[in-house]
């Protein structure tokens, strides 16, 4: 059965799991977290708190914002009123999948930002703070103005033999996803059902791209890369400071035939290279 919104497949490709837990734990103990702390408060009582650094603030639930502010006086706080959060949660129910719902929360939430003793009201969270996958971020950024209103892209990640052998139940040597975008919105994402293509044709990326393009009546751009390379680019790209490096590595990989654009389009290559070498 083909799911329209295959979140597991989407996460596996666009939000790959961090590689080393030891590195993560070590990082948390040596580097002082500095990101904005987002808080949902009922009056002055904290109901939930989160930061991009993944700190566990659960012991603060039920305590006052003032006490929290005293304890984290150097940090920027973004406070959302509970009633507003409830309202946004209810309004977002009409949206079809969690990616859209999360974008809605980011765009529509009104937060009170407290930083260095100053307070201001702000609607919408800075998109640059949102650590999209570098590719999704680009597609929903200014590229959206020059790309077709409807198109799809297909990604195939080939897994190294060692990775597959480590997995006793490995059943495919590659992982795939097809994403359909209409007017800048992700309307469909799933692992495409290619069984009607036959085994041989479904292995050929060009045939798959052609099939998907005909099936959805949109232009489709394919990308074939190794899973290891993709994981490395994704980890780099998750940090906005290093996103340019990720694009550069992708461009170099395409140039050296380690990754493949299917079909090869100069326009797509130019966009990738521009991001990689000039940063926009």
């Amino acid at each position: 059965m083909e799911l329209n919104h295959d979140w597991r497949g989407f996460s596996a490709i666009f939000n790959p799991r961090r590689r080393s837990s030891a590195k993560l734990l070590a990082g948390e103990t040596t580097v002082a977290p500095s990101s904005t702390v987002h808080i949902i408060a009922d009056g002055s009582i904290i109901l939930a708190a989160q930061s991009a650094d993944g700190e566990d603030f659960s012991r603060w639930h039920g305590k006052s914002v003032e006490a929290f502010f005293d304890a984290y006086s150097g940090r920027e706080l973004a406070i959302i009123d509970r009633k507003q959060a409830d309202q946004k949660l209810t309004e977002a129910l009409a949206l079809s999948h969690i990616h859209e719902q999360a974008a809605f929360f980011r765009d529509e939430s009104t937060v009170r930002v407290i930083s260095r003793g100053k307070s201001k009201i702000q609607t919408g969270v800075d998109a640059s703070a949102a650590s999209h996958h570098f590719l999704i971020g680009a597609l929903q950024g200014w590229w959206a103005k020059i790309l077709p209103s409807s198109y799809g892209f297909f990604i195939r990640l080939e897994e190294a033999a060692t990775a597959a052998s480590n997995n006793p139940m490995a059943r495919v040597s590659y992982r795939e996803i097809f994403v359909l975008i209409r007017r800048g919105r992700l309307v469909l994402f799933h692992t495409p059902d290619l069984t009607s293509l036959g085994q041989d044709r479904s292995r050929a990326p060009a045939a798959v791209v052609k099939y998907l393009s005909e099936k959805h009546a949109v232009p489709v751009q394919g990308l074939v890369a190794s899973a290891d390379d993709w994981a490395e680019w994704s980890e780099l790209g998750s940090d906005s400071l290093h996103a340019r490096a990720a694009w550069k590595k992708l461009a170099v990989a395409i140039q050296s035939n380690e990754a493949q654009l299917v079909p090869f389009r100069w326009q797509a290559m130019t966009l990738i290279a521009t991001r990689g070498f000039f940063g926009f």
Binding site: N15, R18, L24, S35, T36, V37, H38, I39, I40, L47, A48, A49, Q50, S51, A52, D53, G54, E55, D56, F57, S58, R59, A78, I80, A85, K88, L89, Q101, A102, A103, F105, R106, S109, V111, V125, A129, A130, S131, H132, S238
Partner: peptide
């Protein structure tokens, strides 16, 4: 955990902060 997930979409946290809960 509903509020926690709401805030994760705002803070774009990719690290788990809900371990204790």
């Amino acid at each position: 955990l509903t509020y926690s997930y709401f805030l994760q979409s705002l803070s774009s946290s990719r690290r788990g902060a809900d371990f204790e809960r």
